[in-house]
Each structure stands twice: as C-alpha cells, then as structure tokens.
Lab assay of single mutants.
Amino acid sequence: MQFKLIINGKTLKGEITLEAVDAAEAEKKFKQYANDNGIDGEWTYDDATKTFTVTE
C-alpha cells in the first residue's frame, strides 16, 4: 500500500510517499525519516487517505 507524509516543519515543508505493508510500518519509516531530518512535532494519521501529517 502507498502512504503519504505531509511535513509542516519550521524549516522543512513538503510531502513524501512510500510503500509499506501497513500503517504501522509506514509510521515507523516516516518517523525515522523525520528523526533523520531533525523534524519533531505533533503527528496525526488519516486512515481514509493513508496520510500522516507532522507539524512542528
């Protein structure tokens, strides 16, 4: 399945997509990506659109 991450950071904004088996795997990958890029914020997930959002 394809999942999307919307980044609303203080210095980094944008979207990325990835393939994952389920939402838990996608969340783990997205949070690792955010951590690697210094993004720390409030996370939400919309199951209907398979979209994660992180807002700093």
Rank of each mutant, 00 (worst) to 15 (best):
E19N: 04
Y33R: 03
E27G: 05
I39E: 02
T51M: 09
T53M: 08
E42N: 08
W43Y: 03
A26R: 00
T55Y: 05
V21M: 13
T44F: 12
K29D: 05
N8C: 06
G14Y: 10
T49R: 15
I16Y: 15
E19P: 05
I16C: 04
N35F: 09
K28E: 08
G14T: 10
Y45L: 02
A20T: 10
M1D: 08
A34E: 01
E27K: 10
G9P: 06
D40R: 13
T49D: 15
D47F: 08
Y45K: 02
K10W: 05
K31I: 07
A24W: 13
D47S: 15
K50C: 03
Y45P: 00
F52P: 00
T44R: 12
G9C: 03
G38M: 08
E25G: 08
F52M: 02
F3S: 01
I39S: 02
I16H: 12
F30M: 09
E56I: 09
E15N: 12
E15H: 15
I39C: 03
L5P: 00
I16D: 02
K13R: 10
N37S: 09
T44E: 14
T55S: 14
F3T: 01
A23T: 13
A24Y: 08
T49I: 10
K31C: 03
G41A: 02
D36V: 15
Q32C: 03
A26D: 00
G9V: 05
K50E: 03
A34L: 08
I39L: 10
L12P: 06
K4D: 08
G38I: 05
E27Q: 15
V21C: 06
K50L: 14
I6H: 08
I7A: 02
T51Q: 07
Y45R: 03
I6F: 10
Y45V: 02
T51N: 03
D46P: 00
T44V: 15
A26S: 02
L5Y: 01
K29H: 13
N8G: 06
K50W: 09
E25D: 04
A23M: 10
G41Y: 02
T55R: 14
Q2A: 13
N35W: 14
Q2F: 13
K28S: 11
E42V: 15
E19Y: 10
V54N: 01
L18N: 04
E25A: 11
K13M: 11
K29N: 05
A20Q: 03
G9L: 14
D40V: 09
T55G: 11
E27P: 00
D36R: 06
G41S: 01
I16A: 06
K29T: 08
I7P: 01
T17I: 10
I39M: 11
E25S: 11
D47C: 10
I39W: 06
L5Q: 00
T17K: 07
W43H: 01
I7C: 03
T55K: 07
T44A: 13
A34D: 00
A23F: 15
D46N: 07
D22V: 05
F52S: 01
Y45N: 01
